[in-house]
Write a protein that binds this DNA or RNA. Structure first.
Lengths: 219, 219
DNA sequence: GTCTATATTCCGATAGAC
DNA sequence: GTCTATCGGAATATAGAC
């Protein structure tokens, strides 16, 4: 399904280059503050050329978000399907998120993007409002199943905690820590803070930031 | 020091009306996506009229943030100074924040403002970057002292927890919950989630959302 | 598939009348 | 203190050449 870059048409390569550039710039400066001209310029074409591939700024944003999500989901599924250990998504999702944040803390990439765009998109009527709403709901559900698994797997098992509430708190913590980290990286160790939270819950998450998962090939 | 509205000059009233309007609009749509013309229009003047009071868009943003902060700080100080109970800021700051979020959850007002602008301001070079950086540092310090107090006052006292780390987590949680709440209010009870977090730490925060504090008169 | 050229709208900011 | 008028620039988007 996923072709190697060498086999792609010139148009498809340009399209991917635009998406990659858009991701970088939106991550740096949000959505409203960025112009198509700037994205096009950094991608090596004019803004009119860019509009050959996307109908407008909104389309570029949503396409980028959706493709990014799909790549991430496929990476998780293929890791699980590889069968080297865990055999379902809920057995790995909490660890995956920890590792994801650890990787982003050492090499900032797309994490700022989601925080900036999600807050910007909270205005109803924003082009990505529905997308983010659905994304948070899905993530919360997946993570809730992950917490239910971790609670049962913990030694001793954790009882009396609501997995859904913990999922909500975990996501909120990850988002909020991102803001503090971007403003003041030296004072904020996101991974340590998240592991500490899991520790409070009764989950021993030692070493979860280092679990080996395949690098995903970004768009 | 603070005059009643009736005694203000016409210019001062206009100035405050502009600040109030700016707060509303920035809270709705962030900074980059808002024009001075729109703020001015909703305040009942032209954008040229607005620029009689502020040197530019950046000035409007920073003045608004700083005055908002000052009003909040003064409200806390005057409550403490009233001497009806707690005699220092650290004895009330955690409860104050809970009540503040409870009030904002029932009557959304300025809470979205800080989440949206702070993420937008994480780009270095943003006009409010330094402001937010300093704000988070100060808030974290104040809240850390608050947690140290609450840990000592808890029954039984909480031991072995780092107040600074808890302050960081509490702020992150509040910010992150705000995003989920704005996207999906029905699924997110911010106050319940924060009280649950305090409960995990060993702090019984029952009823903290209902503590009586004087309404602050907003700008 | 990408360009130039352009239409249209809106931006922040200034000058100066009243 | 607030206005009209306007500047210079940049935005999204379209039309059509190559």
């Amino acid at each position: 399904m996923t072709q190697t870059p060498e086999r792609l048409t010139k148009g498809e390569r340009t399209r991917r280059r635009i998406l990659h550039t858009a991701l970088e710039i939106f991550a740096e400066r949000g959505y409203a503050g960025v112009s198509l001209r700037e994205v096009a310029s950094r991608a090596g074409i004019t803004h009119a050329g860019l509009l050959h591939y996307f109908t407008g700024k909104d389309d570029l944003l949503l396409t980028m978000m959706i493709e990014r999500d799909r790549a991430e989901i496929e990476a998780i599924r293929s890791y699980v399907a590889a069968g080297t250990g865990p055999s379902s998504v809920e057995q790995i999702i909490v660890r995956w998120m920890i590792r994801d944040i650890a990787r982003n803390q050492s090499r900032p990439d797309i994490a700022p993007l989601f925080v900036k765009l999600s807050t910007e998109a909270t205005e109803s009527g924003h082009p990505a409002y529905d997308y983010f709403r659905g994304r948070y709901i899905r993530l919360r559900e997946t993570l809730a199943r992950g917490f239910a698994y971790e609670f049962a797997a913990a030694e001793p098992p954790v009882e009396g905690r609501d997995p859904g509430l913990c999922a909500q708190q975990f996501i909120a913590l990850a988002d909020g820590l991102q803001v503090q980290w971007l403003l003041d990286p030296e004072s904020t160790d996101m991974v340590a803070s998240l592991l500490d939270y899991l520790g409070i819950l009764g989950i021993d998450a030692e070493g979860w930031a280092d679990i080996a998962v395949p690098e995903d090939r970004s768009a």
